[in-house]
Structures are given as structure tokens and as C-alpha cells.
Nucleic acid binder design. Structure first.
Lengths: 252, 252
DNA sequence: AAGGTACATGCAGAACCGTGCAAGAACAGG
DNA sequence: CCTGTTCTTGCACGGTTCTGCATGTACCTT
């Protein structure tokens, strides 16, 4: 048994079983406990495991259930997200808004898609860390805890320095007359700033938002390229928007 | 069952069930009540649970998952983090670096502490979203996926617009001659930029980093206010640093 | 107040750890 | 092919830590 092979075995064991007992492993592999202990010591020094009395534990016990804790988006948002992913130009750049629908888009992005994602949401960044070919650019600023995104003057200013092919915007209200609205003035301003930096802006609108309006206007219909919704083709509000000349993409 | 594993189990149990009955747990795990009691005593001494007659309760019913979150950081980092939290001036501002040790600091911050936290790490932001009285400012820029922080020219530039009372810096190498080092040039530059914006800079150095050096220098000893480590008072490297005039805070 | 339960402490045996050392394997250079 | 060096491995040893039991005390319940 090669030393490196043994190390890999230990790491694998740790991931599978969640713990390592030096004595047991030594017996299994038919070598001395000293060697196992030495390996564990080395791994711990590299931060790959946590050495404890009797064996070792993963650095973070949470890794075991990591996969399970990814909450699934409601069906509607997932449909909208899938359709939105289709608009992202491979090799191009996209500005992703914050919010749960945009997060669904991030999660729906193919893992090996090569593109630049610009966002003011730390959550979106976290969701895309494991996309090796995606370039991430984070817009900083004061954090609005309510929606966990950067807003305010600094964030708007940071947005002035980027541009992109596409902007995917989440809103809370989509109304034929009121236009696109959201519940916070700062957020509305930020969304405007983001939209202004992209060639095309599409709005992510799961069906429950159609026909509703919030307090602060984000954009009038004239300044968005289109709307993505999971509402059916017969939906009254959607049809009204089509009548106004809005390009509506029916997802699902 | 490993001793450390048992401790984690207890913490998890406490978080899930809200209480621990020593007798039951001992029977469940098939070991003596003495061991369980000893563990509970130790946990209570670290402030991770409240010892009561018959078992244990969470330190505060409000923060049921506090202990569980603390548990994900290895012991050394947790100690360093606890000591670092003591340096944060209430009502003041602190620049928090990225990395697992800094994350441990964020998690160790009292939930109702009123202060301004400036960081280039989306992960840190996420960890502090549930601190209602903490003001968060995120420094944006190109995301380095390896360590999940914003780096590069834009991030350094963003840092120029902030200042703080304290900067808590994580590094990968702490060496008496080589100074503070890290494995990436961009990150090193970013750390320098952060440090320059704070009145005081303290380095978070869990014991396994003492005496090691990485490729890129972050700062020489003259430019840091002090170092926080969980190494013992007799540690050779720590003592050498004290001899060099570095203020070393022994957490423990 | 009394009985039972939980607790802290001390102790002994066992398990575990780090270190030093020597034997052997792998390897580079002559 | 031989030789010296380096690295790895297993063993021995002294020290540390853990564990269960016994004992006397503190606490809760009735």
C-alpha cells in the first residue's frame, strides 16, 4: 500500500463514514497504528481533517448533510429559472439580481457553463462557487439584510463600472399599468442601475406576482426587453402585457 | 465511539432536542453516565451548554443552534475566534478577512452586538445576516473561488473608501522571520489593503499555522498590532514572536 | 425528615499519544 | 553495479488522557 494511496483511503473513509478510528483502520489495512496516526497528523496539519483522541473527524461535520440542505425552489420559480438559463449567452456576461427567483436561476445554470456573472448578492455568489468555468464579479456596498444584497450609493456606483449582455431582474410586483415594482426604494434604485448596464433586461416573474404592484417603481415597460413567467398562455395579465407589446416568454 | 464524536453528538442533540438527559444518553450510546456527565461538565465550562440537575440545557433557549454552529469549527479556531471577539469594540467598526478562522469569528459574535462589519467575503456576510444590530458593508470585486472572497483591483479600490477601528486578518503562514504569508498574491495584496484601512490589525493564527510560511508575504511584523493564537504559553514559535516584540494574545 | 437520585472526586486500569531509534526500501550519483 | 543518503515504517518507551467504578456528598422528591 502506497503512502499516498493510504492518505486517499483515509480521506475517502472520512467522507463516507464521518469518522476514523485509528485502531480499526490500522487493523483493516494491515499496518501499524503509528503509520495511520502519522497520516492523520499530516492530514490535520493540512486542514483536511480534525485530529481527535482515538482517530479523526471531518473538519466540518456539516459536510455530511450538505447536499440535502439545498432547499428546492417552488415549482413555478424553477420553471422560470430554467427558461431564463436559456437566455444566458455562452461565453457572455449576465447581471443577476438578488432574491429567491434569481437564486433559482443560479442553481439552474449548467455547472460547466463558461460565462461571467455579475451580481450584488452574496447568496448568488455562494451558489455559483462550484461552477468552475463561471467568472464571478461581486458588486459591493451596504448590505440590506432583509434581502441580503448590496444596495445604496456605493453599490450603484460599483455597478457603473460593469456592463453585460443580459440582466435578469427579480421584482415583487408585475402590473400592466404600474410596471415593475418592489417594496424598497433602495432596492428599486439598485435594480434600475443594474438594468442600465445590460444590453437586454428580462424580468423573472413567477405567476403569483402577475397583476400585483408594490410601493416603489423599478422600471416602466419600455425599458425591459421581456418577461419570463410560468403563467399559462391564457393568463389574463400575461395576455394584457402581450397586448402592450411586451415580449412574454411562457416557461413550462 | 470517539470522545470528540460523543461531544459533537451531545451538542447536536442539544440543538435538535433542546435538552439532554444524562441517563438516557448514556443508555442510548451504551456507555457510563460518568462519561456523559464529564462531557457535559466540559461543554458547560466552554459555555456550550448549561448544566442542570439531571442533564443539560442550551446556554440560551433563543440560540438553540448556536452550539451546533460553534461545533463546526475545530477547537483551535474556536478558541482563537472567542478571543478575537473580545477585541471588537461595541459600537465600533471591524474589518473581517475571509477564510475559515474569520468565519468562526463571525459566528462567535454575540447576536445582539451593535457594530459595523466590513468584509470582502460573501460567506461572512451570510453568517452575519441574522445579527440585527450589526451593520454590514461588503467590498465587491472579482471573486476568487478558491477562497470565496473578492480580490483584485476593484476590491482593493473599494477598500480605499472604508476605515475601521480593527482589522482581523487570517493568514496561512506565521513565521518569525518570514512574517505573515499566504498562498496567493492577489489575496496577499487584498489583505494588505484591508489592514491599511484599520487603526489596529490583529492576526488570527490557530496553532497549526505557527512556524510555517507560504509563498507570498502579507505583512511584516512591524505593521500588525498583535497576534491571537490558541498555542500554549510555552510554544516555541509564540515565544520567539514575543521576543520580537509582537503582542501575542494566548487564547485558551 | 427520609429516601432515592444525581453529582464530584479519587483511583486504577486501559487506551492512546508523541518521540526516538533502528531496520529496510527507494533513490541518486559515482 | 555499488554506495551513501533520504524517506518510510514498525517498535519500544514514557507520558498523557480517557473510562468505569467506588465513595462520600449534594440535591430533589415525597
Amino acid at each position: 500500500m502506497l503512502a499516498a494511496e493510504r492518505r486517499d483511503h483515509l480521506i475517502g473513509l472520512l467522507a463516507r463514514e464521518g469518522k476514523i478510528v485509528a485502531k480499526e483502520v490500522a487493523a483493516d489495512l494491515g499496518l501499524s497504528e503509528d503509520s495511520v496516526r502519522r497520516d492523520l497528523r499530516d492530514l490535520a496539519a493540512e486542514g483536511l481533517c480534525q485530529r481527535v483522541y482515538g482517530g479523526a473527524l471531518p473538519v466540518s461535520p456539516a459536510v455530511v448533510d450538505y447536499g440535502a440542505r439545498q432547499a428546492v425552489a417552488p415549482d413555478g420559480k424553477r420553471k422560470v429559472a430554467s427558461a431564463a438559463v436559456g437566455l444566458v449567452p455562452p461565453g457572455g456576461s449576465v447581471i443577476l439580481d438578488g432574491g429567491t427567483t434569481a437564486l433559482a436561476v443560479a442553481r439552474a445554470l449548467p455547472k460547466d457553463l463558461g460565462c461571467t456573472v455579475i451580481t450584488h448578492s452574496p447568496t448568488i455568489v455562494a451558489a455559483l462557487l462550484d461552477h468552475p468555468r463561471a467568472e464571478l464579479f461581486l458588486l459591493g456596498g451596504r448590505i440590506f439584510k432583509h434581502s441580503a444584497v448590496a444596495c445604496g450609493a456605493a453599490a450603484v456606483e460599483a455597478a457603473q463600472n460593469v456592463s453585460a449582455d443580459l440582466c435578469l431582474l427579480g421584482v415583487t410586483g408585475v402590473h400592466p399599468e404600474a410596471g415593475l415594482t418592489t417594496g424598497d426604494a433602495e432596492e428599486a434604485a439598485m435594480k434600475r442601475a443594474l438594468s442600465a448596464r445590460a444590453a437586454d433586461t428580462y424580468v423573472l416573474a413567477s405567476s403569483e406576482k402577475l397583476g400585483t404592484a408594490s410601493q416603489f417603481r423599478v422600471l416602466p415597460w419600455g425599458e425591459v426587453s421581456g418577461l419570463i413567467t410560468d403563467a399559462g398562455r391564457g393568463d389574463a395579465v400575461a395576455e394584457e402585457l402581450v397586448g402592450l407589446g411586451v415580449e412574454v416568454l411562457f416557461a413550462g
